[in-house]
Design a protein around this nucleic acid. Sequence first.
RNA 1: GGCGAGUUGGCGGAGUGGCUACGCAGCGGAUUGCAAAUCCGUGUACACCGGUUCGAAUCCGGUACUCGCCUCCA
Length: 479
Amino acid sequence: MAQLRFHNTKTGQKEEFEPIEPGRVRMYACGPTVYDRAHIGNARQAVVFDVLFRLLRNLYGEGVLYVRNITDVDDKINARALELWNSDGAQSLADVVRVITNETIEWYREDMGALSVLTPDLEPRATEFIPEMIELILRLLEGGFAYVAEGHVLFSVDAYSAYGDFSRRSPEDMEAGARVEIAPYKRNPVDFVLWKPSDSNEPGWDSPWGRGRPGWHIECSAMSLKLLGNNFDIHAGGADLIFPHHENEIAQSICANPGSEFARYWMHNGLLTVNGRKMSKSLGNVITIKDLTNKGISGGAIRLTLLSTHYRQSLDWTETKLEENTRAMERWAGMMEDAPNCTGAVSPEIVAALSDDLNTPKAIAELHRLAKEGDFGSLKASVELLGLLTGESGTGRVQVEDGMQNLIERLLQERAGARGRRHFDEADRIRDLLLSAGVEIKDGPQGTEWSATSRFNPDRLEQGNPGDSAIVGGFADDG
RNA sequence: GGCGAGUUGGCGGAGUGGCUACGCAGCGGAUUGCAAAUCCGUGUACACCGGUUCGAAUCCGGUACUCGCCUCCA
């Protein structure tokens, strides 16, 4: 078996990976907060750790247990619900919250399916683990690691001397640089909320401290400890979660279980920029998976783009990159279609590349090599290990309805006739028309073959505007 | 202000001491009515300044610039 090596955020170094229990790997990834469509940043995390999951399954088989939570209690969700809530109506705010979270979970499943992200073994919802969270908080209170103040329960950072070690920052620095308003009831400004009171409208649960809801970090501790144990192998998430989320999770979990180490290996994916700028709602440059699939871009192309940069680097999302990867997916898809019966084993070089801290760019380079050498069997198996060209992520080829097929066939016949008469201007005009609509044609010895690309746009064919070639090969939808 | 990451050929992107990936684009050729697709060939780049070494993109020190986190964020 290839020796696995991962960069561990906890130590800041690349380390050999050995499971705590031989043959068994337990991993936890921070999943979505369900109040909005998944964007390409959410997708990057899901795809990267899906590759890790696939690699681990390839090496450890059924010994892998992968948990990815769903955060369905959160003030962002409450804020969204408040926007939609009609206070005169029959629904309570909590009902609206439930509608939003359920709908968003469906969207998330749909979007992840489009990207061929495998469903984790367990997808616990935070609201199903409220008793576990309360129990955990009680234990922290008993141990003197937390205190109650004005209906809140707060974690006392001063009670945990290692606080800040994980994210390599000192509480003093955090305090000095804090931009947050400091709640007066905190003993230390850096103390964070374990439980907070809910007003009568907000979702809330009865607790020893009154009706309230959990703070942001406690859910992940409660769920991972319950489902994976006090010591497990891998905890994954986006780099922006290192502080405060993961720092706080570690503090809570270890203090609640003295002597435990919580997660042994911590892996964080780099964040994503769009055209060189941070992707954020305030900048209005958030790209959702739905935005892309609505434009006819295949899940496979999105997935390949997300994997084309090493997971720890920041990734700049550009149209050029997406187009390049769309072309690559279409090319490989074409090879697979032309060689449906080829079988083979996953290339050992690809397993080796992935085993070395998930070096997906190197693995992709190997895919190119297999394609070039015509080793379609290995290509197919390797591509599947990366989750490309499987399931819904699709081939990049687009199915065309019958009526449109007939129109294309008729245009091709016209073109063939024109070519026969050596009227090449006419033939080329038809070819340009088809190209502008996203239909590629190939003249071969056996005649002309055609295929619709992901850019297929039937309106172009019907409008018939061969002079407008500016959009050929582009993603523009407005010409 | 604190912490961290990055700077590789036209673009993207691997690579932790010698063999200098890979993709896209470009260029030349084959093929083609012309194309597309395909195939063949073609690319000595590592921000800057010092240092270590027989030898550095790769190690060490410094400088510059870019970006991110520290606030909800994946």
